[in-house]
Structure formats: structure tokens, C-alpha cells
Design a protein around this nucleic acid. Structure first.
Length: 418
DNA sequence: TCTGGGGTCCTATGCCTT
DNA sequence: TCTGAAGGCATAGGACCC
């Protein structure tokens, strides 16, 4: 059996742990740049605040309904997540951290356990030790555990936050209950195709013939069907090293000049390179994206990207930034108002263990230079050492008007008790 | 004025080689 | 030497997740 443990309204719950004023009140958390709503408390959902609501359109709404608004505080959420996950590790050695707020637990050799009560112990311990409420779904497969979790979340009073699918009868009942768009792995596009075939629930989906699914969809949907029928197809995954590292952002305004875009791209490349060195990897593929404002339908649109393949793997900011800037210069079109750019690095290899190229290798001076750069940036934090082509005047800053303190990761922002 | 960001995986396509 | 089929690979783009 597998359990899916999911933190309820995770970001909103994290804010509540440290600010009791927010308890039992409607809370909304905004995305980067305070752009749109990405997490809501139950109270905010009940008022009718939709997921993804653009903050600027909902200013009045927030005010009218006394919704407490917070900017996203990722250092805080990341730290709270690590605490929750370490608690889960006490219950079984087989834990797959699926995302910042959820994890799958596998119970091998737990046949004699009373799983509903075990689920309850998990919930209670997390709540007591971290203050984060969770829901637990238990079932023979991951996809069914997801369904069970939805039921636990939807009916907290009846289920006490834990629901177990351990019989065919319960499985069929659950599948007849769950809407097709709420099934894990069914997104907007698939939902549209399935509605044409009159598939409205998870149960309708498993009635479709295997061949039809195989022909019209990808292998994933076929596996999904097996999972919903009770056959394990998605195994618990071991932690994998990352395939790619990305920094992509929307600009606070649009840019039509190459200089501003080069500066942004250089900054994104620098950030990717720092993340890369933190995990002791090097990369040899650099991918740059550039895109106009798709909300402005009347303006000419341009969406483009370019990859650069290096002849040797590198973790040098200088090399990665130079390649990214060259790439973006070659795809830039004048006369377009660009709104968003990004740098994605792939082809990741461990730095100390990669194949050396006979003729073409990293400039040996870069390694000590990067070490100095990283240690200075760690020491002086916000006053970073930058490349000359980055934003030296600090004119660019993310909007975060409602940011809570980093209670758990910065000593001078720790909670005060009066 | 102001509509997120970071990932993974799959498929279609085109080119090259066998 | 020509030709078509088939497989491998890289790339771009889409779909999905949180």
C-alpha cells in the first residue's frame, strides 16, 4: 500500500504558523512579482477567490472581503517543507518527496498495521511538530492514493483527514465520485478530448478500451488506466539528480532594446550557474528563451528559443553568461516588445567526474575565480559581486509588497515574543 | 501600470546513417 | 551506384505537475 501525504493549502498554512492573526481568516499568497494568487486558505476559497487570480484585478476584492494577502516567501516554505519531510521519514524508509508539499510513502511489510490509524498518527505528529495540517490518502497505487487524498481533503469531518481505498468496492465508488479533470495526469487538453467521448469521471475513463487509449494518448495515460484499475504502474522513485536548472522571469515592463535583454539574460545565466555550482555539477547545453507579451493580443508576437552546445562541460558563470548573451542576441528581433526571458541549462554532469576533452577544456583560471565569487556572495549576501554586463545600478527588483519575515532561516528575522 | 516559476516527460519532425 | 525503409539522434514544442 502507498500513502500520499499532502499539506493543506501549504503556503497559506506556513504563513499561519508564524502569524496567528491569520488563523481562521481568508489568506491569499501571491506569485513572484505579486502577480497572481497561487495559494489560498479554505476561507479564501469559500469566498470565491479563484486560483491564479491576477492580483491587480482583485485588489478591491481583497479589500472588500478582508483577505490577508502575502507575497511568496520561498525560504520559509522550503524550510517548513524539509521539516515535514523529515517527520515522514520516521514512519517508513520508503519516502518519495513528490513536491514541496507532498510525498508518497510506501508501506512494505506493514500488513498487520491498522493503516487508517497509522495515517492519523502521521497527521497528528506533523500538525503538532510543525503546525501544518495535512491530508492522507492510502491506496494500492499512486494514482488511487491521489484520489483517496482528494476524498480525505474534501470530507475532513467524515474522514478525519485520512481515507483508505482497500477494496474494489471502495475503489469503484471513489472513481465514480472523482471528476475526470481532477484525476492526476488529466490536464486541460486531455479533458477536452475525453469530454467528447462523454468521459466525465474516473470510472468512465477506465471503461475506455486499452487500444483506444494507446492509440489516441501517450503511454502515460495507458499506465494511468492500469493504476486506477489497481495495478501498480508508477513505482516509488528514488531521488534523481536534476536534469535541468532554470531561471526564467517576466519583466516588470516590456523591453524592445537588446541591451536590457542582454543584461537580464546575463543575470539569469549567473543565477543558473550559482545553482549549478551549489550542487557540484557542470553543464554543456545552454538554452535561452525570449517571448513577447501574450496578453497583448494586438501587438506583434514573437516567441523564440535557441540552444548552445559547448564543447566541454562548465560551471563557470563567465562561460555560461557569455554563451547565453550570444544566443539571445542572435534570436532577438527588433520592433518586438519582449516581456519574458529565461535561461535553462541542461546536459548536467558531476563537476569532479566528467570526461575531459582532449583539446578544449575550461580555462583553469575560472575555477578559483568562481570559488572566490561564491564565497564573497555568501558572505555579503544581498550586496552581490556581479558581472559587468549585469544590472549594476540595482534598478531591477522583484515586487514583494506583502512579504513575511524569513522566520526560520535568518537569525535577524526570527519571531519575537513580547 | 500590474496575469508566476521550475520542473519532467512525451511526441512530431527532420536529418543522417545503415 | 541508386533507392527506399528503418533506426538513431537532436530539436522544438506541447502537456502535465506543483
Amino acid at each position: 500500500m502507498l500513502a500520499l501525504v499532502d499539506c493543506n493549502n501549504f503556503y497559506a498554512s506556513c504563513e499561519r504558523v508564524f502569524d496567528p492573526n491569520l488563523r481562521n481568516k481568508p489568506v491569499a499568497i501571491l506569485s513572484n512579482n505579486d502577480g497572481c494568487v497561487i495559494s489560498r486558505s479554505d476561507e479564501a476559497k469559500a469566498i470565491g477567490l479563484p486560483m491564479g487570480a491576477p492580483a491587480f484585478k482583485y485588489k478591491q476584492f481583497f479589500k472588500k472581503h478582508n483577505i490577508y494577502v502575502r507575497s511568496s516567501n520561498y525560504p520559509l516554505y522550503g524550510d517548513m517543507s524539509a521539516r515535514v519531510m523529515s517527520i515522514l521519514n520516521q514512519f517508513t524508509p520508503d519516502v518519495e518527496i513528490y513536491s514541496i508539499d507532498e510525498a508518497f510513502l510506501q508501506f512494505k511489510g506493514f500488513e498487520n498495521y491498522d493503516l487508517p490509524s497509522y495515517g492519523n498518527i502521521i497527521r497528528q505528529r506533523i500538525l503538532k511538530w510543525t503546525g501544518i495540517p495535512t491530508s492522507v490518502g492510502i491506496a494500492p497505487t499512486k494514482s488511487l492514493a491521489k484520489v483517496a487524498n482528494k476524498i480525505a481533503r474534501k470530507y475532513p469531518k467524515q474522514t478525519n483527514g485520512v481515507y483508505v481505498i482497500d477494496s474494489d468496492k471502495k475503489r469503484i465508488k471513489a472513481l465514480k465520485w472523482i471528476k475526470i479533470e481532477d484525476v492526476w495526469g488529466i490536464g486541460r487538453s486531455l479533458q477536452k478530448q475525453l469530454k467528447i467521448k462523454n468521459v466525465k469521471t474516473g470510472y468512465d475513463f477506465i471503461q475506455l478500451p486499452d487500444e483506444w487509449i494507446r492509440k489516441n494518448f501517450s503511454i502515460i495515460e495507458w499506465k494511468l488506466k492500469k493504476e486506477l484499475e489497481g495495478t501498480l504502474s508508477f513505482k516509488l522513485e528514488a531521488p534523481k539528480s536534476k536534469q535541468s536548472i532554470a531561471t526564467t522571469r517576466s519583466f516588470e515592463t516590456t523591453f524592445s532594446d537588446i541591451d536590457n535583454i542582454k543584461e537580464r539574460v546575463s543575470t539569469f545565466a549567473t543565477s543558473c550557474a550559482e545553482k549549478l555550482r551549489k550542487q557540484n555539477s557542470s553543464c554543456y547545453i545552454i538554452h535561452v528563451l525570449l517571448r513577447s507579451d501574450w496578453h497583448k493580443k494586438d501587438l506583434p508576437q514573437h516567441r523564440t528559443s535557441k540552444s548552445v552546445i559547448l564543447s566541454y562541460p562548465t560551471d563557470s558563470t563567465l562561460v555560461i553568461s557569455k554563451a547565453a548573451v550570444q544566443a539571445v542576441t542572435s534570436i532577438f528581433k527588433s520592433g518586438i516588445k519582449y516581456k519574458r526571458a529565461g535561461v535553462i541549462i541542461t546536459g548536467l554532469v558531476p563537476t569532479n567526474n566528467h570526461q575531459l576533452n582532449l583539446f578544449n577544456n575550461e580555462n583553469p583560471k575560472h575555477k578559483p575565480l568562481m570559488q572566490v565569487l561564491d564565497s564573497l556572495n555568501t558572505k555579503y549576501g544581498d550586496y552581490k559581486i556581479k558581472l559587468a554586463n549585469q544590472d549594476l545600478k540595482q534598478t531591477w527588483k522583484m515586487r514583494q509588497e506583502h512579504l513575511s519575515p524569513r522566520y526560520t532561516t535568518k537569525i535577524n528575522e526570527i519571531i519575537h515574543i513580547k
